[in-house]
């Protein structure tokens, strides 16, 4: 009963909100227009740059993580690419200043949600693509949060299908 009431209120609010503002949200002001597709083609001594090269927590931690500025500068101390990106110098300038140079995490789980990359990547053996889509083809940073990653129904559907635990405290706090 309570759930029904809540749903009604929610639906009402949703209607009001959606009708009230149609203007699309502006994209987050990232320090640079970041191109994933170029980066995954970069050849290193040991092969191409992997997702986990820059998001090392994906295999062993809760958070995939974004690299620190110093990590970017390992390559970008010198101009890269041919021709180099016209805005690449911003990385070096931020490095010289010591910051700030902050990537904005566009999709963030709410505070009461716990999500572990390690559990999904190392244990459940999901690939990055399974949840994030084909990031390797992205030429720009995402403009809006990825709804597929924020839907509890999707989480639960997959957990049920794979027999993963579904108690509240698996994912909530």
């Amino acid at each position: 009963m309570r759930r029904a009431a809540l749903l009604a209120v929610t639906a009402l609010l949703a209607g009001v909100v959606l009708v009230g503002c149609r203007r699309p949200s502006p994209p987050p002001p990232q320090p640079l227009p970041f191109d994933h597709s170029i980066h995954v083609r970069v050849e290193l001594d040991q092969g191409t740059l992997q997702c986990t090269s820059c998001h090392p927590g994906a295999e062993r931690g809760a958070h995939a993580g974004l690299p620190a500025l110093a990590y970017c500068l390992r390559c970008h101390m010198r101009p890269q690419g041919d021709p180099p990106s016209p805005r690449e110098h911003l990385v070096r300038e931020a490095g010289a200043r010591g910051g700030p140079f902050r990537w904005i995490q566009v999709t963030r789980e709410p505070g009461h949600v716990y999500f572990s990359h390690a559990a999904h990547v190392s244990l459940a053996k999901l690939t990055c693509k399974d949840c994030h889509g084909d990031v390797t083809s992205w030429q720009a940073a995402p403009k809006a949060p990825n709804q597929r990653l924020l839907s509890m129904d999707r989480c639960l559907a997959c957990h049920r299908a794979r027999g993963a635990p579904t108690h509240c405290n698996t994912c909530h706090q």
Binding site: H112, H167, C168, Q173
Partner: peptide
């Protein structure tokens, strides 16, 4: 708890989901 915000986890912890 009328909304299931607090519950026993399978490993015996009396848990609470704050947002519930």
């Amino acid at each position: 708890c009328p909304v299931g915000a607090t519950f026993k986890s399978p490993d015996g912890i009396t848990m609470q989901i704050w947002d519930r």
